[in-house]
Amino acid sequence: MSITINNVTAGYDRHPVVHHLSGSFADASLTAVSGPNGGGKSTLLKALVGFVPLMTGRIDFGGVKPDEIAYLPQQFEIDRTFPISVLDVVLLGNWSRTGAFAPMGKLHRKEALDALAEVDMAAFASRPVVSLSTGQWQRVLFARIIVQRARLILLDEPFAAIDGHTTLELMQQLKQWCRNGVTIICVMHDLNLVRAHFPQSLLLSRELIAWGNTADVLTQENLDAALERSGSWQESLERCEINGEEERSA
């Protein structure tokens, strides 16, 4: 049932960002993906959700279907000035059941309102999203994921620019999902948060540095290695491309 990554290389325009990554995410695990900028954290999530094609290797989703994957990109990728109400955003979580045409009924509305209540946003249901703060907006997006009933949740820096109190509350939601059997993979920058809340960690700097229990992964030695790797990434890119050609010609 776990999600297994086997020798995955992925990137854009023939430039691989993640190189030959292998490992697996256990069922109902909570994993933080950390590493320097440009190290391939977001690319890994995009490869998992299918937005970035795999150049090598494959991903075994262990029975999780494509419409059971929820993905939350970094904040700026959504137009928050659009004239749509909070409730309508959360209702969209029903998409895998209603599709583009089927009407949203009373049950859908109730589920959406319950999800909003769970993230303390019930009072905001009829508000336009443009009136929300960054933290409130993130709560609404979490409510939409609740309605999606996903089995795999991919979050890209969900706590960037979010205050400490909201972060802790949303963190409780992550743990709640895990208790319900959902697998969560979360790109994180704040290593203190990772150490405090994430049992599993994956340290990525174009290549895998370490993967396992957070305490074993986030050692000074590994962090130094990740930084060093990112400093000389152009060198490593070249090396890998040569490897790739050798593999192909062999």
Binding site: V49, F51, D67, E77, I78, F82, V89, L92, W95, A100
Partner: peptide, 23 residues
């Protein structure tokens, strides 16, 4: 009327539309 829901989502959150495989 037919494309309304997809058009709205495509306009304000195209990434979500891709994840739910909307057209």
């Amino acid at each position: 009327l037919l494309i309304y829901r997809t058009l709205v989502v495509e306009s304000f959150d195209p990434v979500f539309l891709r994840t739910v495989r909307g057209n």
